[in-house]
Amino acid sequence: MLSDSFLKRLDALALRMRHPAAGGSGGLRRSRALGSSVEFSDFREYAVGDDIRRVDWNAYARFEKLFLKLFMEEQEQRVHLIVDASASMDFGKWEPARQLAQTLGYLCLCGGDSVTVYTLGGGGERHTRPLRGRHCYPELSAFLESAQPQGRAMIETAVPALRLAGGRGASVLIGDLLDGWEQAVLSLLYRKQETSVLQVWSAAEWDPQLEDAAELVDSETGERFLTAGGYEALRRYRETARAYVEEVTAFCRARGVCHGLIIPEEPFEEQLIRALSAAGLVA
C-alpha cells in the first residue's frame, strides 16, 4: 500500500492521455463526443428537434439564420492496468510492479477514469470490476496486495483473451517483458487501446554478479542452463540485456507505444514518479 504522504503528492499529478476519451460515461476527461461541457467546439445549422436553448442568438442577428453552439463532451477514460504476476516477477520486481499499478490506479481514480486491474499469473487471469472514484482506491490496492507472483503468465495468449470493457481505452502493461510481450502489445493496439508498457527489471537482472560458473534455473519453466560466469560472460550478458531493452524500445516507438524501463532503487517512490514522467504517463 502506498503511503498517505505519497498519495498526497500524487494528488497534484494527473494521468496523461494522448487520445481523447471515447465511449465512457460522464467523466472529467475530454472526449471526441459533443456534449454539455463549457468547452466550445463548433457551430452547426439548426435542425428540427434541436434544443433551442443552444441556439446562438447573436449569430442569428447577424446572419438571420439559426445556428447552434456545440460544446465538447467530457467523458471518463477506461483504463486497463495489466500486471504480469508470473514467477519471473518474484525476483525483486513484484513489489515495484505492484506499486506502479497502485500509483497509476490512484491517478486514474482521482482523474475520474474507470480503472480495471488485471493480474496474469500461474493461477490464471484475475481482475477487478471497473472502479471509479477515489473511494475505490482501497479496493484496487487490496486486490493488488492479494496477488502473488507464481507460475507462467503466458501473456502472449492471456492478453488477447482479456475481455476489455468498453471498446476504446487505455491499457498499461506492467511486467518484465521477457516472453510473449510483442503479441500482447499488438493485441492491445489492435483493440484500439492507447497502450503503454512499463518494463520492470531487477538490478540483478540488469547487472548480474556471477563470479563463477553457474547452472541457471528458469523460474517459470525449470529449464537449466550452464554458464561460465566470470567477467567475460557477464560482460556479454550485459551487452545482450541492453540490446534487448533497445529492441523493446524500438518496437514500442515504432507503434506509438509509451515505454519505460524501471530498475528499482531506494527510495522507490521518488524513482516511480520520475519513471512515469519520463514515460509520459503523468503530468
Binding site: 556471477l210 553457474a214 541457471l216 534455473v217 523460474s219 550452464l226 545482450t240
Partner: peptide, 11 residues
C-alpha cells in the same frame, strides 16, 4: 557450476 535460479533464461 553452482545452481542459481533466475527469472528467465531468455537473456
Amino acid at each position: 557450476a553452482r545452481r542459481t535460479p533466475v527469472p528467465s533464461l531468455l537473456l
